[in-house]
C-alpha cells in the first residue's frame, strides 16, 4: 500500500512537470502552429541555471526566479529564430529540432555530462498516508497548480490573453484588427520557456537532470499535449498527470526499462484514436 502511495506521489509530481511542458507546447502551438521540439530544453536550462546561480552564492528563491526569467528569455530567442521571417511550417519544425540539439550541445559544454541537482525546499519530510514525503514534492505540485492557474487566468480573462486566443483562432482577422501576430507568437514562446523553466526549477531537486534529459521530457510532454489536441490546456494537464502516474506505476510494478516504451506506445495509441475521432468530425463538416 505504501508503495502505491509512493508511486502515486512521484507519479503526480512527474505528471505536473509534464503538464507544465504540455501547456508550453499548447500555448506555442495555438498561436504559432509550431510544435516546439526544444520544449524540453527549457526544463534543462531552468534546472542548470538555478544550479549555477546557487553555486555562485545567489540566495535560494532568487536563483529560481532568475532561472525562470532566463528560460523565458531563451524561449523568446528560440521563438525569434523559429517564426520570424518567411518560414514554412516544415522549416519551423526542423528549426526547433535544431534548437533542441543546440541546447544539448550548449548544456554539455557549460555543465558537462554528470547529472546535476541542488537542494530544494528544506525541512522535515512530511508524513502522508503512511509514508514520508519530501516537502519538495508538495512544492512541485503546489507551485505547478498556481502557475497553471495564473496562466489560465491570464489567457482567458486578460485583454492580451484574448488577443493571443484571437491569433490562435484566426490570425488573418487578428492582423486586420491591428494585432501583431508575430509579436504574439514571440510572447507565446516566452511563456513556453517560462513554463519549462518552472518545471526545471521544481523537478531538479528531486530528480537530477542531464544535458540530454530534454528528449524524453519533450516526447512525453508532447504526448500529454496531444491528449489536449495540442490546443486544450485542461486536457493537456489531465494527459500529463495520466502519463506521469502510469509511467511511475509501470516503473514500480513492472520494470524501469519499460516505462518509456510503454508511455510511447500509449502515445501512439492515443494518436491513432485521435485521428480516428478527427476523421469522424471531418465527415460531419
Amino acid at each position: 500500500m505504501s508503495a502505491l502511495v509512493q508511486y502515486l506521489i512521484t507519479g503526480i509530481s512527474q505528471g505536473f512537470l509534464l503538464a507544465l511542458l504540455a501547456t508550453g507546447f499548447v500555448v506555442i502551438y495555438r498561436v504559432t502552429k509550431v510544435v516546439n521540439f526544444a520544449q524540453g530544453a527549457f526544463v534543462v536550462f531552468g534546472g542548470f541555471i538555478t544550479y549555477s546561480l546557487l553555486g555562485a552564492g545567489v540566495p535560494q528563491g532568487v536563483s529560481e526566479v532568475l532561472a525562470v526569467l532566463a528560460s523565458a528569455a531563451i524561449g523568446l530567442v528560440f521563438g525569434a529564430v523559429t517564426i520570424l521571417g518567411k518560414m514554412t511550417p516544415t522549416a519551423s519544425l526542423i528549426t526547433t529540432i535544431g534548437l533542441a540539439i543546440l541546447s544539448e550541445a550548449v548544456a554539455m559544454l557549460v555543465w558537462g555530462t554528470v547529472p546535476l541537482t541542488f537542494s530544494g525546499l528544506s525541512g522535515h519530510d512530511l508524513h502522508i498516508a503512511g509514508i514520508f514525503v519530501q516537502p519538495q514534492y508538495l512544492l512541485l505540485i503546489g507551485a505547478s497548480i498556481v502557475v497553471l492557474l495564473v496562466l489560465w487566468l491570464v489567457l482567458e480573462r486578460t485583454y492580451v490573453g484574448k488577443g493571443m486566443t484571437a491569433c490562435a483562432s484566426n490570425p488573418y482577422a487578428a492582423r486586420l484588427s491591428g494585432i501583431n501576430v508575430k509579436a504574439m507568437g514571440l510572447l507565446s514562446f516566452a511563456i513556453g520557456g517560462a513554463l519549462g523553466g518552472v518545471g526545471g526549477v521544481l523537478i531538479t531537486p528531486l530528480f537530477p537532470i542531464t544535458y540530454d534529459s530534454d528528449v524524453n521530457l519533450a516526447i512525453l510532454g508532447f504526448a500529454a499535449a496531444i491528449v489536449g489536441w495540442l490546443t486544450n490546456p485542461g486536457l493537456a494537464l489531465a494527459g500529463g498527470l495520466a502519463f506521469g502516474v502510469s509511467e511511475e506505476l509501470v516503473a514500480g510494478y513492472w520494470s524501469d526499462a519499460n516505462q518509456t516504451a510503454v508511455a510511447l506506445a500509449l502515445m501512439i495509441v492515443l494518436l491513432l484514436w485521435q485521428s480516428h475521432r478527427r476523421q469522424q468530425v471531418e465527415k460531419l463538416v
Partner: peptide, 25 residues
C-alpha cells in the same frame, strides 16, 4: 478598417470580446 470577406470572426470568443479586440490599436 477592413471588414473581411466571410466575416472572419474569432469564433471561440464572445461578441463583446470580438468587438473589444477590434480596438487593439
Amino acid at each position: 478598417a477592413h471588414v473581411p470577406e466571410g466575416r472572419e470572426l474569432f469564433p471561440d470568443l464572445c461578441v463583446d470580446d470580438n468587438l473589444r479586440l477590434g480596438a487593439w490599436k
